[in-house]
Write a protein that binds this DNA or RNA. Sequence first.
RNA 1: GGGCGCAUAGCUCAGUUGGUUAGAGCGUCACAUUGACAUUGUGAAGGUCGGAAGUUCGAAUCUUCCUGCGCCCACCA
Length: 864
Amino acid sequence: MAKQDIPKRSDIPKAYDAASYEDGIYAAWEASGLFNPDNLPGDRPEAFSIVLPPPNVTGTLHMGHAVMLAIEDIMVRFARMRGKKALWIPGTDHAAIATSTKVENILFKTEGKTRHDVGREDFLRRVEKFAQDSHDTIVDQCRKMGASLDWSREAYTLDAKRNHAVNVAFKKMYDDGLIYRGHRVINWDPVGQTTISDIEIVYKEVEATLYTFRYSRDFPIAISTTRPETKVGDTAVAVHPDDERYAAFIGKTFENIPFAGTTISIKVVADREVDPAFGTGALGVTPAHSLIDADIAARHGLAMRQVIGEDGRMTADAGSLVAGQTTREARETVAAWLRAKGLVEGEEKTTQNLATAERSGGTVEPIPMLQWFVAASKEFVRDGKTVSLKSLTQDAVRSGSVKIIPERFEKGYFQWADNMRDWCVSRQLWFGHRIPAWYRGDEIVVSEIAPEGDGWTQDPDTLDTWFSAGMWTFTTLGWPEKTADLETYHPTTILETGYDILTFWVVRMVTMTTYLLGQVPFKTVYLHGLVRDEQGRKMSKSLDNIINPLDMIAKYGADATRLSLVIGSTPGNDSKLSEEKVAGYRNFTNKLWNISRFVLSSVDDTLPSPSKGEGQGEVYGGPTPLTLADRWILSRLDAVVSSVTRKLEANELSSAGEELRDFTWNDFADWYLEIAKIEKGKDAILMDVLETLTRLWHPFMPFVTEQIWSSFKGTTLMVEAWPTVENRRDESAEREFAVVQDAVTTIRNIRATQRIEPAKKVAATVGNAAILAHADVIKWLARLEDLSLSDKPGIQLVLGDMDMVAERARLEKERDDLSAYVAATDAKLANVEFTSKAPEKVVAGMRAKRDEAAAKLAAIISQL
RNA sequence: GGGCGCAUAGCUCAGUUGGUUAGAGCGUCACAUUGACAUUGUGAAGGUCGGAAGUUCGAAUCUUCCUGCGCCCACCA
């Protein structure tokens, strides 16, 4: 390396200031085009692909996104450095209901208008403007995080290409009979004025009154309910078939019972779903306003009577007493009527799980409506086998084609997949993929474009946002066209996302992809946990405990932010984040920076570059043979390369990072660099370790490593090769060096506890205090490696002084310890009773370890 | 009601198929300080691994039960 290539120490700032480098580095990466795998150098037969779980265009990125970006970027950068064709596709999600609700709220707050006041066209314009702004913010934040996303392939769940794909998929499913239009009981959100799916419901525990009553004085069976207002829609009473109390009434119909302002007819049916032990053991069946009742009604062919409307009020059909009232008002009205008529047999306070809409907060009402559904269990033939969307979804994971990390979440997956029901996909929202169905009178045509002829109108509804999200791995790669990208990158290598979205998204991706492509969407699912505050609470606006990733990046740098999110958190587990933690990793970033500063400023400019793969003694070319410390650090380096590689392959990111940190700080900086200050001729090794470390750290800390790299190489670190294991493992050196470390530590302890004042004085006289701090290191290395220290007389004095105290103390202490230890081990071994399992091996192992420890102690004593 | 997870140092967590004296970071305390770094260095203190029983020569680790937290799912009318 030529001298002019090495920056002078004075040229490199003492502290690493992330803010002054990061944006420039990212811009250079982006300009290089190397985020696009098509531009990567070399022959890359193996593909690696991740699609970014598209953030919702509802605002800005939070810590959850930052974790996702950090983890995925590590995976992608690692793959890229390992010579894979590494693709990471960015994108955003229109998040129909979430975005729509958000804009509606803003519209109402700022202008006092609803979406119906401004109309479909105007409303959509506003949503798109909002979505665009949000998109721009999100993209900028991804860049700040250092995410090596291929922006040339960026996608949006609602752009033209994805819309086309959605239409093609919808039509195919319709043609295959897997999408149908039907009049069924769905979850209706009266506030959002739309249907919602089961998983968009959140249950809240509320107090309720459980009324037990009879429809009329002469009705033979009493029933219980917390919702008397729905009872005007009852058409049956269901009892268990084995319930002797009611056996006589099964099959009978009680016609024209006057009830709360209307007239009802009740048939008594027997159904095994009824729990005879609950309440009176009889269930009033309201087919139109309860999903379970609708099922019972379907089994028994019962009439359906809708008494709650889309506005959340009682319909005219509900009868004169309650028509027009809200359900809450009607509940009191009916209860009052029952009491007045003396029909109530019991009132009991109870808690009830109230279904509310996740986004709008409205109370969800089951209501029968004409909607579009995806048939979960309908069977069809695929490759000669009878399957269903449900069975395809189950089989992908059951067969091992999709692996979930951590494994325990497979239970959650099956819990959902096994109970998969028909999926209502139509939404009465304006923002989203419009359903490609056209109507003219009784005719229905499913088509992307309007059918021939006049008078066709398109379905006004849009699709559940998860319909298009479920197609994300392949629509981003060009489907339905048969593209080269699709061929190369699908199935994607890994899906990395939060565990909270497993049922929403992951399951649906498997369903859509296995059906449409006959492939799994990804081979592995890696689920990260939630980022909580330092007290373990969820971050939320109301608690005012949100840590904004951009603030952390501005203050401590993206590298530090990434490390704080990745190290110390394991898949599937929530992690806690505090500003102190980020600051801690900023310190580490700075440490690495200063390590490089030291190495670069101390290497000899005449040194040849290290050439690897030759005999150990000559590899580093210098006149001095490898010392113990050299052999030790190289051996450790090899071990770290090997271990970190294995861990990253296994997606053990946290553990890999911790090991690297430990080696970097505790081995390289604290020991080897200190030794290098005294022993010269280590330039090649210093450079070698620095270079390897920089490569190893790059996926975790892309910015600072790229910056360090640029100070001694003219290339782009991002596309450099991942380090490989050299043949430098040297276990005896590691053992021997451990002895030195032990010994040194002991002397330090003696010095610390006994206060060797003379040593301090001499050191002060010599004026070389920095070296004194490590005099013990030098001393022991000098002993073991027979180095001359004659050019540092001051140190010799210090060492001589220390020796007298240290050696005596150590000799006395260790000798006792050794004999006690050997005796204890022998006693232990004598007591071992051999079992039939693995006796010889076990005892041999213990004996070997004992001998090893004894040898270690003996070695120390012989040195003294 | 069903399922899952967690409990290890003051705090946050590692601990890979059971194996010597249970580790790290932060925090605390002591000492150090002009030559890479105070965003630093060297050390120390601090744990009967939630409780009980069991399996084993040996348990933080495996089994059972108990206690305390947390999460997910579910239409108990």
